[in-house]
């Protein structure tokens, strides 16, 4: 059903399949299952990281990496479920600049932290 829709647009706009990861895909559920599941998962992830920190379940640096990982999973959930990342008339071009943005953002923050580690006395 969904693939018919997208192929129709594709033929009309581009006439060729192109890259798979920017193929448009629409959310057309009869019941808002993705929204409910996404909401529950986001609550679970938030409380998981809060409880991990509350209990000091891990050494400090491992704990930071774990909760940042949980935050990244939650961001991916929001993008995929709530933001309908791949919805578009033609190819979902927004995916490419978005991932380029992730690369720049990650580089900016990661490199800033990395360079400050060389300061005397540590970061």
């Amino acid at each position: 059903m969904a693939s018919d829709t997208t192929e129709g647009i594709w033929d009309e706009e581009r006439g060729e399949p192109g890259f798979a990861f920017i193929q448009p895909r629409f959310q057309e559920e009869k019941f808002p299952t993705p929204q409910v599941v996404g909401y529950i998962l986001s609550l679970v992830l938030t409380f998981a990281s809060f409880i991990l920190v509350e209990d000091r379940a891990l050494p400090a640096s491992a704990l930071l990496v774990t909760i940042l990982g949980l935050a990244v999973i939650q961001a991916a959930l929001q993008l995929g479920i709530f933001m309908h990342l791949r919805e578009s008339r033609g190819p979902a071009w927004q995916v490419i600049p978005l991932f380029l943005g992730f690369l720049i953002a990650g580089g900016l923050i990661g490199m800033s932290i990395w360079i400050m580690m060389f300061k005397w006395g540590g970061y």
């Binding site: 578009s88 008339r89 071009w93 927004q94 600049p97 978005l98 380029l100 943005g101 992730f102 720049i104 953002a105 900016l108 923050i109 800033s112 932290i113 400050m116």
Partner: peptide, 28 residues
């Protein structure tokens, strides 16, 4: 109208970079 949605994604990417720079300032 659908072109404007793609355009809004571009705005969100640039806004994400604003927050990325503020996060890096905070990290430092």
């Amino acid at each position: 109208e659908s072109i404007k949605i793609t355009g809004f994604w571009m705005f969100l990417v640039s806004d994400m970079l604003i927050f990325a720079s503020l996060f890096s300032v905070f990290a430092v």
